[in-house]
């Protein structure tokens, strides 16, 4: 199962969890990779916990449900607590340290703490903490080319909200600097 990345994005509804996953898979699509995007669905839409499984691979994808992620992106504390144990040994965890006030105790994973929500607020990018984390994830994992990532982002933002694209690109840049 070479070159398969299983990602679990998790947080509150409204934090852009599903959107972040969409940017990733649209980016992967432009490179002709195999991919899947599977949201949790149901009452989560109303501000409860929300998560999204993203698989990007060079070969046909078996289960699209990510139960043992290579990468966990946790945007709130309940998500980190719930999923921290499921990350594969040697895996990666990205934590929004401005919304999660605990540390990962595991020593067999690489953890990046990014104060994404504060960074977003400070830079006038309210609501784009998710994209800042995506920027960091891209920097560490390089799962697709930068060009494809930008294309994925452009694909996910409707043409009539063109100004949002610039904000998102800026958020991506900030994330990559972390």
């Amino acid at each position: 199962m070479a070159n398969t990345m299983n990602v679990l994005l998790a947080g509150f509804g409204g934090q852009g969890i599903l959107f972040t996953g969409k940017v990733m898979v649209y980016g992967a699509l432009t490179e002709g990779k195999e991919l899947s995007w599977l949201p949790s669905y149901g009452p989560e839409m109303r501000g409860g916990t929300c998560n999204c499984s993203v698989v990007i691979s060079d070969e046909a994808i078996g289960s699209p449900l990510v139960t043992n992620p290579d990468v966990l992106v946790a945007m709130n504390r309940p998500s980190l607590e719930k999923f921290v144990g499921s990350v594969v040994p040697g895996g990666t965890i990205l934590v929004d340290s401005s919304t999660v006030d605990i540390k990962v105790e595991r020593t067999d994973v690489t953890v990046y703490y990014v104060p994404a929500t504060s960074l977003a607020d400070k830079n006038g990018l309210k609501g784009l903490a998710n994209i800042i984390l995506l920027g960091k994830l891209f920097k560490e994992k390089q799962f697709i080319s930068r060009e494809s990532l930008d294309k994925g982002l452009a694909k996910c933002i409707p043409a009539k909200k063109a100004e949002m694209l610039e904000f998102n690109k800026k958020a991506l840049e900030i994330g990559m600097e972390q």
Binding site: K22, L29, E34, S36, L38, P39, Y41, P64
Partner: peptide, 10 residues
């Protein structure tokens, strides 16, 4: 099923 209905793939 709900998984196939909700998931996105190419």
């Amino acid at each position: 099923d709900g998984m196939l209905g909700q998931m996105m793939e190419p």
